[in-house]
Design a protein around this nucleic acid. Structure first.
Lengths: 193, 193
DNA sequence: GTCTGTCAACTGACTGGTTAGTTGTCTGGG
DNA sequence: CCCAGACAACTAACCAGTCAGTTGACAGAC
């Protein structure tokens, strides 16, 4: 029952995800991760190398999970934004981890999983634009950037504003999806003007 | 020339802003801030109390500077987004500091400057909506959240995507302003549909 | 069945270096 | 003379990473 390397690695990854999401790389404590995973600190070094590499392992897994839970669909970017929003709401650690990654990982270091995921999305958008499924007033990178920013808008705004925000998750979701439709120039509700 | 408390405080604030922007609260080193301000660590404790309070001082000043440099105009949110974008581009530390603040300051702690600034903006949007200057398909908080998220879209997206982005700042600015126009339902270019 | 050798999984204790925060003293301007 | 501004030196805690050694599972010999 005990002595199961895979199980230990998994517990370590979960504990690390929680610690890193809460405190970032610099704020995370290796001892605390090991303790809350119920094992010894040395296991982290045996399995993952060091603190930074442990973070990378956590983040790579997170990217994979997000790609799976919120599959990309260039032909319906509004629905994709909705799924991304759902993912962020279901697991707030996702946004935080992703933000820490942006702030704390030195420039120039790119994770393969992230690069591949982006490249694939950009190609799909470009194809959809050529096929006329997506309007072409924005370039693929521009569109993807706006869609991602919109889906994470509630999570990327200062907390003081968040406290004024509608507690109603469903309403926030509607706003996100509708906003992307408007960006695409195909609003469901054309609005007063 | 020496012995000038105000001058020392200012140097300390500048050095702290750079350090915090680069490394966050947990990653910043008090010794390094003092050294790059050309004075002693004890001065930080004499003038600001402790590390967290030093961060708050830096951030409060940043909020004031941003409000001044990017004055809010509820009647023309697209132009406001453009100004915010300019501010972020001119001083990238702004976005980073603001992000660190969101991640590292414990929930429940609110800076007066931030709360006041938000409240004022929300009231202005509400008034503009009542006067018919701004469409009302989104509530004030929703609109403000989307506008801020859009202005910071390029800065809040993972770096791997940024490297594919157009280096052309002017084009990114056009996209931001145009996106906000679309959100408001009054696009300059109505698009293919 | 049980004894024994082997190896991966695991651990407690340690280290070298770092860090936030403090204190007692000095200095120069008024 | 006096006191705010400045600092070197200090402390107590902390922390990433290491290491010598232990434990448990299991395979093959008998």
């Amino acid at each position: 029952m005990a002595r199961d390397a895979e199980r230990t690695k998994k517990r370590l990854l979960e504990a690390a995800a929680a610690e890193f999401a809460a405190l970032g790389i610099a704020g995370a404590r290796v001892d605390r991760i090991a303790h809350s995973a119920g094992c010894n600190k040395a296991m982290i070094y045996a399995y993952f190398g060091n603190k930074d590499q442990l973070f990378d392992a956590v983040f790579t897994q997170l990217v994979a999970a997000t790609v799976e839970r919120a599959p990309f669909d260039a032909a319906d970017l509004a629905a994709y934004a909705g799924r991304l929003f759902d993912r962020y709401e279901a697991d707030p650690a996702t946004v935080r981890l992703s933000t820490w990654y942006r702030l704390e990982r030195p420039q120039g270091v790119s994770l393969q999983a992230v690069v591949a995921s982006n490249k694939s999305k950009l190609e799909k958008i470009e194809r959809a634009q050529r096929e006329g499924l997506v309007p072409a007033h924005y370039a693929p990178v521009e569109l993807l950037t706006l869609v991602i920013a919109t889906a994470g808008a509630w999570a990327s705004v200062n907390p003081e504003l968040g406290s004024d925000a509608p507690a109603d998750r469903e309403r926030r979701r509607v706003v996100v999806v509708d906003a992307v439709r408007r960006l695409l120039g195909t609003p469901e509700d054309p609005g007063p003007t």
